[in-house]
């Protein structure tokens, strides 16, 4: 299921970015309601989060009841409370493996960023690269990364390197595709305006195309950084001696199911954290973009 999830979601990176940012971006909704301030603003965000929170609580509650009342064995499906207990009790172990996975994600993501942005710049700048390399990049995404991961062990051995490669392979694609889209979608009138001011092709690229592509680039980064966590886990599943993915493959045959769940909880928390971090960096780097978005959503009212 995991190996399939990457090509499927990757097909429409833009849509996914939209869905994710509106889901996890509290400022979007509160701003679209105009000048909500102080308590009003707080209430608005409470209202916004109330429905998903209630559903989550209901789900966890029925899960808890189901396992408790139905006498489901712990090794088969541990109750949420058991998982929470496991999180607390094994926190040392979990933290130790979390650090390893986080390092893989960080290094792999940086590699993905470098590769993704260089490819995107090349493709947007040169028509030859666009015609030759771009189709190959898109086609490459039909290769299930999880099938390549074992081969990486043969080529580069165990250790950190194969994990970084898997993370980069999964993470670069949404970054490059979104950035290419951003670099291409430039107002032609603005490019003409720059030409009448004497701009060279390169100056139009650096001073117009690059800055106007940044919002799209950040959409790609937000997807890429979330995928990176999946990449690290795949890398660890295939062959590792540490990391949360390793902890899962190690605990599952021993029927330490609660620990597997605990690792999953930590992994998704990591994904959310990295996503929020990317959003924060975006806000710091693109203050104009958020002013614009807010102004637009006010106009809509």
């Amino acid at each position: 299921m995991r190996q399939r999830s990457s090509p499927v979601t990757i097909d429409r990176p833009g849509d996914m970015a939209g869905g994710q940012s509106s889901g996890l971006d509290p400022a979007d909704g509160s701003s679209s309601r105009g000048q909500a301030r102080g308590i009003g603003r707080y209430l608005v965000s409470l209202k916004r989060w109330a429905a998903p929170l209630l559903i989550l609580i209901a789900l966890l509650g029925s899960w808890e009841l189901w396992t408790q009342l139905g006498d489901v064995p712990k090794w088969q499906l541990p109750a949420p409370s058991t998982i929470a207990q496991e999180l607390v009790e094994s926190r040392g172990l979990l933290w130790q493996h979390t650090q390893v996975t986080l390092l893989e994600v960080a290094l792999g993501f940086v590699a993905a960023l470098i590769v993704g942005l260089s490819l995107a710049s090349g493709i947007a700048y040169s028509r030859i690269l666009e015609r030759s390399v771009y189709p190959i990049i898109i086609a490459s995404q039909t290769i299930p990364i999880i099938a390549i991961a074992p081969l990486l062990l043969i080529w580069v051995g165990y250790g950190l390197t194969p994990k970084i490669i898997v993370v980069a392979l999964i993470g670069f694609f949404p970054i490059s595709v979104n950035t290419v889209d951003g670099l291409r979608s430039v107002d032609p009138d603005m490019a003409n305006m720059m030409r009448t001011l004497g701009a060279s092709r390169w100056q139009i690229f650096t001073k117009l195309q690059v800055p106007s592509s940044l919002p799209r680039m950040f959409s790609g980064i937000k997807i890429g950084i979330t995928f990176s966590v999946i990449g690290a886990v795949i890398g660890e599943w295939v062959g590792a001696s540490e990391g949360l993915g390793y902890l899962m493959t190690y605990s599952q045959p021993l029927f330490l199911t609660a620990r597997v769940f605990a690792a999953i909880v930590v992994l998704s928390a990591m994904g959310i954290m990295l996503f929020v971090l990317a959003t924060l960096v975006e806000r710091l780097m693109l203050p104009w973009y958020h002013t614009e978005k807010r102004a637009r959503s006010m106009e809509r009212i």
Binding site: D189, M190, M193, R195, T196, L197, A199, P211, W288, Y289
Partner: peptide
């Protein structure tokens, strides 16, 4: 002439990030 004649269009074409 390109680059030595000033040209202002109806749209202000200001860059939102500057």
């Amino acid at each position: 002439r390109l680059g030595s004649i000033g040209y202002m269009q109806q749209k202000d074409l200001l860059m939102p990030w500057r």
